[in-house]
Design a binder for these strands. Sequence first.
DNA 1: TCCATAACTTACGATCCGCTACATAAATGG
DNA 2: CCATTTATGTAGCGGATCGTAAGTTATGGA
Lengths: 204, 204
Amino acid sequence: MEQTESRRTRGRPRQFDLDEAVATAQRLFHARGYDAVSVADLTQAIGINPPSFYAAFGSKADLYSRILDRYAAQGAIPLPDLLSADRPIAECLVAVLEEAARRYAADPGAAGCLVIEGARCADREAKGAAGAFITAGEEAIYRFIAARYPDQAACIQDYMSTVMAGLSASARNGHNFDRLLATARLAGVGLEQTFALNRQGREK
Amino acid sequence: MEQTESRRTRGRPRQFDLDEAVATAQRLFHARGYDAVSVADLTQAIGINPPSFYAAFGSKADLYSRILDRYAAQGAIPLPDLLSADRPIAECLVAVLEEAARRYAADPGAAGCLVIEGARCADREAKGAAGAFITAGEEAIYRFIAARYPDQAACIQDYMSTVMAGLSASARNGHNFDRLLATARLAGVGLEQTFALNRQGREK
DNA sequence: TCCATAACTTACGATCCGCTACATAAATGG
DNA sequence: CCATTTATGTAGCGGATCGTAAGTTATGGA
């Protein structure tokens, strides 16, 4: 017999909802950034005391890492979906930029990319956790480009990273979705032009 | 008779060089960002004690503001020079982006733009001081574009801000000058294309 | 020589930071 | 019933933060 999911745990039941607390913390981190959110801010927002916080989440950095997982599964840009399509490369990359514009401006109270902005914090642990997600995304984009244009993949990958960091920054600076989208499309012109020239060169 | 510059001040002479101290502080702020530099870091790097620091500079935020002035005069992108030229608009804007790439990667120990990165800090006072410089730069670029293309000035201005923020972020992420320059030029394609289409539309 | 001035050194206050020791409350298992 | 387990609240630790009060030292001016 396996233990069923309905079997209660032993000790005193937790008096707050874990997922709800994580969501609250995510909102805080996204709105203010890792460094600017103190444990006191978190415990107050969740409505618990420090010992409950540390018992449930380990530490501020641990909680942040858990939130990054949550974000990658729910709020982040779905790179596999956008990149695995059998559309032209430039179209896919522009779609990524447009999706970035959409998501970065989705919540006015938590603008920008949680991961990109998180990687800018001073805390070594949190920076490393966010950096791992960034690296993963960068590699996904790099491989996607390199499959067809290995020579230019690095350069275009740099461009994508830079534009996305810029979009996240501009979102935090108050640019709304329309402005971000216009910027993303303007940035896409460089991509389309590059791959158009590539095709010309090949067909010659 | 006016008092000459050689006239010494009354009390005990300062035992450290003011300009040198400001330069040291600028290096620290540029390398780590406003929030991550403590007064203790500054006093230790300069070689003085806190009271001397506060007597000389007022506060951390005051010193930062003074450093922004210094940076605007020495280290920042010379927008008037680059924009007042009677070259095509796109060429000027690309020159700004290329100059940004050059300066943001100039010092590996202090990558990115002191002003752009400073505007991202948590301290209200420092954020406001840096924000004023950013606004001034943005307005200069906006006016430059609007003089000939008023309809598209806002959009292109957004694009410029976003790319420059991205370049600064990528510089902090370790991109060297060559990589930043390639990114800046790729970003310039969107500008050239836009203004090329504009001319086509006019000549029709 | 003595005073006014200004920068110096030492030491500390007040507050916030992440985090925890300790006793207590609320549940399950025997 | 009691033991075990887990969460909770109170209260506080050690350290870092920005900033300052108090007393000392070094200069110029009268």
